[in-house]
Design a protein around this nucleic acid. Structure first.
Lengths: 157, 157
DNA sequence: AAGATTTAATTAACATATTAATTATTTTGA
DNA sequence: TCAAAATAATTAATATGTTAATTAAATCTT
């Protein structure tokens, strides 16, 4: 079976990202935000106070990248760092009032794009894609079948 | 309908990439290659001589990034640049003998990973995912339905 | 044929990704 | 308790991504 380069999973995923991200970026740019900065504001909305590690996990941003991104968000007064008293290694990130306000302004417009994409295919098709993607995904509570297939040669067709 | 952040298409795609890329990267690292450098060698295998623009399109790498990546591949003697005589704006990128040899050594191992991933789900499930992803993808010959859904509010459930 | 327009590649400036190492602090275990 | 191991965040070094501007060459227009 010829697994061509163009049809490899990495290329399929990247091509999809290249297809959908410009729509989001155009929106973020209107608010002088990057995609990554948005993800942080978005997560801080649903969780008042988050450690750097937890933020990295929830935004899928690498911890070393977070440092600089949060520096820039802090400079814009959109978030701030709070050193934990109980464990002084830990840093909590919180959104400022300004940060929360911005999140609330941008959020519905992001959702609009989310829903446009979502409604480009049927409910069943979307659900099917979501389930399949999750099988290849990191950090799934659902113990991924992929791992067994990766470990040995477990096949499935 | 609540399109939660975690289930948005960008996050689903990034989570899948985070799940699968480490396997590839570990392989590339053994040959002192980055993922992007590999993509270029891979494309140059199936097409002797490619312009910078065509290479950007086929690898999904942004043209400005290509400049630096090719500089580094040139430094490693894996590729070289050839200025076109017919149109002196155009630059052709070609793999050196060493570059082609490396490609041939790495390629089967990449395919092994490709196939492991491929066989983690059934043929039908894979095909379904591929078709759905293509609907969101850039540069599809198949005039994407997504565009109409994006242009107006065309729904599909 | 000269000037305006377009095109291919590159440069510039800034933001983020990747991997390894470091720092500060906390937790473990003898 | 104290040294070793573990943990959270950061720094360092290098590579790539993103957007706008630039350069050089070709094409188009009149």
């Amino acid at each position: 079976m010829i697994t061509s380069f163009d049809d490899s999973l990495p290329m399929l995923l990247h091509r999809a990202l290249d297809g959908i991200m410009p729509d989001y970026r155009e929106l973020f740019a209107r608010y002088k935000l990057t995609e990554q900065q948005w993800r942080i504001l978005r997560v801080l909305w649903s969780s008042q106070k988050v450690t750097s590690a937890e933020l990295a996990h929830r935004t899928l941003l690498p911890a070393p990248s977070l440092v600089g991104i949060i520096d820039r968000l802090e400079k814009k007064k959109l978030v701030s760092r709070l050193r934990s008293v109980k464990d002084r290694r830990v840093v909590y990130i919180v959104a400022t009032a300004e940060g929360r306000a911005l999140e609330q302004e941008v959020s519905p417009q992001v959702q609009k794009i989310d829903e446009r994409l979502r409604s480009a295919v049927s409910v069943e098709e979307w659900h099917s894609m979501e389930e399949t993607l999750k099988k290849f995904s990191s950090g799934m509570a659902q113990r991924d079948p992929k791992l067994s297939a990766l470990a040995e040669g477990t096949t499935n067709n």
